[in-house]
């Protein structure tokens, strides 16, 4: 037993200390000093009665029943938006004649298609789950929202780099713009629908929620392009198809950042 065991007991809020940690602490001046300091019984300050009365009065004046949010339903709503938005945009892009048929799916081999669409589905699931949890403060997160928003694009980029070859295309930027302007509107429509769902919750970190929602909306656009676009150049997929997702994440982050600095707009 040493000082770190006492630290561990403090971290786990084990009061009183476990016997072995207590035995160490009784013979260790450093631990005694720390325990005395953190357990110092500072006189607890009570909130003034007038303030408490004022709080109660203001709450009582607006007391009516509310329906608690339901995580599974929120998750279902977000996932439903993703599926519907991808389906609708893939159909409308086909109908508009920009990309006749599911050329992207047809051009990919089964491994490429399987891995890319599985990763897109997994990313969409995790982001929708994270967003639903961000709407309910105090929820347990599978992955920290900030970290999740940061790792999705690198993981997809690694998969693209491993599955597709990098080529030099003469019309790279023209093709980039062609796909980007097809994918971006799909993302914008999805983002608007996500916003309608998100405003029902209490978003406590608007930048993280904005980046997550923007990224998820961008992935809707990217998935549409993966279905429709037959260009399998890795650069094109990364910068054009997933560029829509990156742009979505960035715009969402900026929108969240703006909202965080204007708290009156937040829930």
């Amino acid at each position: 037993m040493d000082c770190s065991d006492v630290d561990q007991a403090l971290i786990k809020s084990e009061i009183p200390l476990p016997p072995q940690a207590d035995e160490h602490a009784s013979g260790c001046p450093r631990c005694q000093k720390l325990l005395r300091a953190v357990n110092a019984s500072a006189p607890a300050e009570a909130p003034s009665a007038a303030i408490l009365r004022d709080i109660e009065r203001r709450i009582a004046g607006d007391l009516r029943p509310v329906k608690p949010i339901h995580l599974t339903r929120l998750m279902g709503a977000l996932a439903g938006i993703v599926v519907c938005a991808v389906g609708a945009s893939a159909v409308s892009v086909g109908a508009s004649g920009l990309y006749p048929g599911a050329l992207g799916v047809a051009a990919m081999n089964p491994v490429q298609a399987g891995v890319i669409f599985a990763l897109l589905a997994a990313a969409a699931f995790l982001l929708a789950d994270s967003l639903a949890r961000q709407m309910a403060p105090g929820s347990r997160h599978r992955i920290e929202p900030k970290i999740l928003a940061m790792i999705v694009i690198p993981v997809l980029a690694i998969a693209v780099a491993a599955l597709f070859s990098f080529q030099r295309e003469p019309n790279f930027w023209a093709e980039w713009w062609y796909c980007f302007r097809v994918g971006a509107p799909a993302g914008l429509v999805a983002a608007a629908l996500f916003w309608l769902v998100l405003r029902r919750g209490a978003i406590l970190s608007p930048p993280a929620a904005g980046a997550s929602a923007g990224l998820l909306a961008g992935l809707v656009g990217a998935t549409t392009l993966e279905i429709r676009c037959s260009n399998l150049d890795a650069w094109h997929i990364l910068l054009s198809h997933f560029g829509v997702a990156m742009a979505g994440a960035l715009l969402g982050l900026l929108a969240g950042w703006y909202q965080a600095r204007h708290p009156g707009l937040a829930a």
Binding site: K67, H70, P137, G138, L204
Partner: peptide
């Protein structure tokens, strides 16, 4: 935002998050 508390979940993390 009291509707964002989910029944059955611990209250304290919800309160402190806010």
């Amino acid at each position: 935002v009291r509707h964002t508390y989910r029944p059955g979940q611990p209250v304290l993390p919800w309160v402190y998050a806010i």
